[in-house]
C-alpha cells in the first residue's frame, strides 16, 4: 500500500505535481546524498549528483520507468551514476581507492547505512540549538570539551551535560525497527 502511494507520487512528480516532489525529496534526498558520498567521498559532489537525479525525473520523465519500487529506482540510479563518475576519474587519475573499497560491500548494507545516517542527521538537526551547537563542535570539528567550553564561554560541566543529552536524544530517535536492522547488520558483519 505504501509502495502504491509512493509510485503514485512518482507518477505525479513526472506530471508536475509540486506536493509529490516535496514528499519524495523529504523522504529520499538526504539519505541518497549520504549514499552517494559512500562512493564519492565528497558530500558536495554527492549532493549535486543526487540533485541531477531529481532533475532528470521531470526532464526525462518519458524515459523513466519504475519497475520495482521507487526506493530501488533512486538507489540504483544514484549508484550507477556514482560508478560512472568514478570510472571517469579512474580514466584520468588512476584507480580510485574508494571504488576498490566499496566494490565488495553488499548493496543492501550500504542502503541501510545511508538510511541510518539520514535518520541520525535528521535527529541532530532536531536537537535544541545550544545542544546541537555543542554536539557539532565536538563531533565534526573535533574539539575537546575544554575547547568547546572556552569557545562558547560555558563550563566544562555544561558541555558534559549537553553532550549526554544530545547523545540520549539521538539514541531515542532511532526506532526499535531500525535498531533491529542495525543489530542484524552488526552481527552479519561480525560473522
Amino acid at each position: 500500500m505504501r509502495n502504491q502511494s509512493e509510485l503514485a507520487s512518482f507518477e505525479n512528480i513526472k506530471n508536475g505535481d509540486n506536493a509529490a516532489f516535496n514528499i519524495l525529496f523529504d523522504k529520499y534526498y538526504v539519505a541518497l546524498c549520504f549514499y552517494a558520498n559512500k562512493y564519492l567521498k565528497d558530500i558536495d559532489l554527492a549532493r549535486s549528483l543526487v540533485q541531477q537525479v531529481f532533475v532528470d525525473l521531470w526532464t526525462k520523465r518519458e524515459k523513466i520507468v519504475v519497475s520495482t519500487s521507487v526506493k530501488s529506482y533512486f538507489y540504483n540510479t544514484v549508484r550507477n551514476r556514482c560508478i560512472d563518475v568514478l570510472r571517469k576519474e579512474k580514466a584520468t587519475a588512476g584507480l580510485p581507492k574508494s571504488l576498490e573499497n566499496i566494490g565488495h560491500a553488499p548493496f543492501r548494507d550500504l542502503v541501510e547505512e545511508a538510511e541510518l545516517n539520514d535518520r541520525i542527521n535528521a535527529s541532530i538537526n532536531q536537537l535544541p540549538e545550544k545542544c546541537r551547537e555543542i554536539f557539532l563542535l565536538c563531533r565534526f570539528e573535533g574539539l575537546k570539551y575544554s575547547e568547546i567550553a572556552e569557545k562558547l564561554g560555558i563550563s566544562v560541566k555544561t558541555v558534559e551535560m549537553q553532550m549526554g543529552i544530545a547523545l540520549k536524544k539521538l539514541r531515542d530517535s532511532l526506532s526499535d525497527y531500525l535498531m533491529v536492522n542495525l543489530l542484524v547488520y552488526v552481527f552479519s558483519k561480525k560473522s
Binding site: 508536475g16 509540486n18 516532489f21 534526498y29 546524498c33 549520504f34 558530500i43 542527521n121 539514541r171
Partner: peptide
C-alpha cells in the same frame, strides 16, 4: 549513533537544495 552520524548536512543546506530543485522543477 556516534559512528553513523559521521557526516552532517545542516537543515539550512537541505532546505536550500530543496528550494533550488523546486525552482528548476517549476521551470520545467
Amino acid at each position: 549513533v556516534w559512528e553513523n552520524g559521521y557526516l552532517h548536512l545542516p537543515e539550512k543546506v537541505i532546505q536550500s537544495d530543496k528550494s533550488d530543485l523546486s525552482q528548476s522543477f517549476n521551470q520545467h
